[in-house]
Design a protein around this nucleic acid. Sequence first.
DNA 1: TTAAAGAATGCAATCCATTGCATTCTTTAA
DNA 2: TTAAAGAATGCAATGGATTGCATTCTTTAA
Lengths: 346, 346
Amino acid sequence: MSTRKIVTIYDIAERLKLAPSTISRGLQDNPAVNEKTRKRIMAAAAEMGYRFNTFASNLRKQRSNMIGVIVPRLNSYFISSMLAGIEKEINSAGYDMLISQSLELEANEIKYARAMLNNRVDGLIVNLAANTRNLDHFQEYSRHNLPLVFVDRVFEDDDFNKVMINNSRAGYDITRHLIEQGCRRIVHLTGSLMRNVYQERKAGYQRALAEFQIPYDEELVLETELTEDASAAAAEKILKMKNRPDALFVSNDMSAAICMKVFKDAGLHIPQDIAVAGFNNEIISRLSDPMITTINYPGEEMGRTAARQLINLIEHKSDNDLTKSIILKSQLVVRGSTLKKPTTNL
Amino acid sequence: MSTRKIVTIYDIAERLKLAPSTISRGLQDNPAVNEKTRKRIMAAAAEMGYRFNTFASNLRKQRSNMIGVIVPRLNSYFISSMLAGIEKEINSAGYDMLISQSLELEANEIKYARAMLNNRVDGLIVNLAANTRNLDHFQEYSRHNLPLVFVDRVFEDDDFNKVMINNSRAGYDITRHLIEQGCRRIVHLTGSLMRNVYQERKAGYQRALAEFQIPYDEELVLETELTEDASAAAAEKILKMKNRPDALFVSNDMSAAICMKVFKDAGLHIPQDIAVAGFNNEIISRLSDPMITTINYPGEEMGRTAARQLINLIEHKSDNDLTKSIILKSQLVVRGSTLKKPTTNL
DNA sequence: TTAAAGAATGCAATCCATTGCATTCTTTAA
DNA sequence: TTAAAGAATGCAATGGATTGCATTCTTTAA
C-alpha cells in the first residue's frame, strides 16, 4: 500500500533526481531519453503506483483524441452494426470512442452534444433521436469548427455532412414488390415521421401506390415507436380493420416479426392472407417462418463511411467546407413472407 | 465568427471587468454571485462562444463524475438490457457513463481498464470478455481504492464485488425439465467455458444428468462463440450425429432460434424430433415458432443492482472492504419448444 | 587534445477552472 | 450615525502533463 497521496511525474522526478520533463518524455517513449533512464522511469512509475492523468495531458495538449458518438439506443441491430463499423475505423486511426445514448429524446441529445463539446471531442457522429426538432444544438460545432457527421437519421436539407441510404427508393422498391405480388391494400407501419428515414420510406410507399393508381389511404399508415408492445398493438389493430389489408410493410424486421407472430396466432397464413415485409435485414428476418422480405441495409458500412469521413475532416480541416452527402446502396431482398405468386421458394 | 482563439473564463472576466473566480462561480449558478452579475456572465459567455473545459475542471476537482463500463459487446440482448439498467441508476445519481466494448478480447479489456483508470472514472462496472485469463489488470483498482463491480461474467472465487445469477441452478433446472419431458440424449451448446456463466450452466447440466443417472457424454457438449454462423454450424453438426440427440440446451435464445431454423429446414419437428431450450428470455424466444423454453434472466435488474452497489461504494468508501456477492433470481420459463408431453400448450 | 556535433536532460511557461480566505461593498439594527 | 452582519467580489495557489529552448554531458573527428 504505497499509495495514500496521488503520484505524479513530479514525485517520480524527485525520487529519481530527474526533471519532470524527462519523466514525461520517458513515459511516452520519446526517443530523446536514454534507454536506461527510460527503464528506470518505468520501473519507478510501476513501483510507486503512478497513474497517467488524462485530464492534465488533454488540457495541455488541447485535444482529447476522442470521437463522440450519439445514438438513440444501443439495443438495435442497426445501431450495433453501425457502432461496430465506426469503432473499427476509429481505432485503426488511433482514436477512442465516447458513446452516449439519447434514448430517443431530444433533451438528452442536447445534453450529450454539449457534454461532448466540453469534453473536447475531436469530432462527432450522430444518429438523431426520434423527436429531435432541429439541429440548433449542433450549431456550436460549426462555430468551433468541429467536424460533425450525421448518419442515417439526418436532416436532409441542411449543410451538415451526412451518410445515408436512399430510403425513398427502398420504400418504393418494397411497396412496388408488394403490388406486383398482387397486394392492393397495403398497411405501412412506421416509426416517427419526424425522422427522414421513416418520412422517406413513406414517400416511396406513396410514390409506388400512385404509380399503380392505388389511392393513398391515410388510415393505412400507422406511426408508432416500433417497440415490442407497440408493434403487437399495431398488429392487433390491423387484424380488426373492417376490410382486412392484404399486405404490411414495416420499418424494421423485429417489428415485422412481432406482427407476423400476432397474425399467425390469429390463424392467418403468411403470405397468403397477408404479406409482410420488413426493413434492415436483421438476423430475425432469416429466422422467422416464413423468412421476411426486407431491405438489406449496410449498417456497418455506413458506420465505417461516416467514421472515415469524420477522420478525414479532422485531419484535413481544409476541405471542411465542401459538405458531402454520401449515399450508400441498399437492396431489396425478397423472401417467403411476401411471395404470394408461385415462384421458386426462397 | 467571433472565434479564432479559445475563450476561457479569463477572457470573460477581462471583458466584464470581473475576477475569473466570479465568472467560474457565475457559470455554475453559485448563489454567492449576484443575480444580475450572473446574467451578464451568461450573456457574455454565450456571445463570446465560451466552452466549459471539462479537463481543466476535472483536473482541479480531482474527479470526473464518470462511471466506466466495460462490456464484451453491445449487440446482445442481455448486454443492452444491462446497460439500460446501469444507465438509469447512474443518471439518477448524477453520474455519467463511459462505455467501452472489449469485443470479447482480453487485450482490449486490459487496454480499456487502463484508459478508464487514467480517465479517473469514479468507479467501474465490468462484464468480462470471453477469453480473459485473470484479473491482474484490475488489481490497480484495488490499489487505488477505486470501487469495482463485476456483473454476470465474473470470477467467482476472488475478493471483488459481483452481481450474478445462479447459473448452475438455471442449467440444472433447464436440463431437468428436458429430462422430465423424456429426453435422454441432450446436447449442450455453450459459449466459452472459461467464463463462469457457461461453466456453471454446464455444471448444472451435468448435475441434472447425474441425478437421473444419464451418463455424461463429452461429445454432446459443443463449445462455440455463439455467433450466427457458429450456431448454424453446430446445428448442422448435431443433425449429422449418428445417434441423433433428442434435445438441445443452448446458452442463448438467438443461437437456439438459429438451431431451430436449421432443424426445421432439415424437416425435423420441434419439439417432437428434438426439443430446444435457450437462455435469457430474449424477444426472439417469444417470436419463434414454437416459442422457446428459456431462463428469464434479469439483465436490467442486474445492471441496476451493480450500479447501485457501485455508487454506494463510491459514496461511502468505508464499507469498501466488506465485499459482497449479490445473487439475483432467475426462473425457468417453459414454452412450446420443449413440451413433448401433451400439456396445455403455453 | 580540442572543437564541433550529437545525445540527454533541465527550465519554465502554459493549458483552464476551482476554492479557501481576504477584501470590499451594502444593508440592517441599535 | 455607526458598528456589526451579510452580500458580493477578488486574490492567488493549485491540479499534473507538455514542449520549445537552453544547458550540460558524451562522443567523434580532426
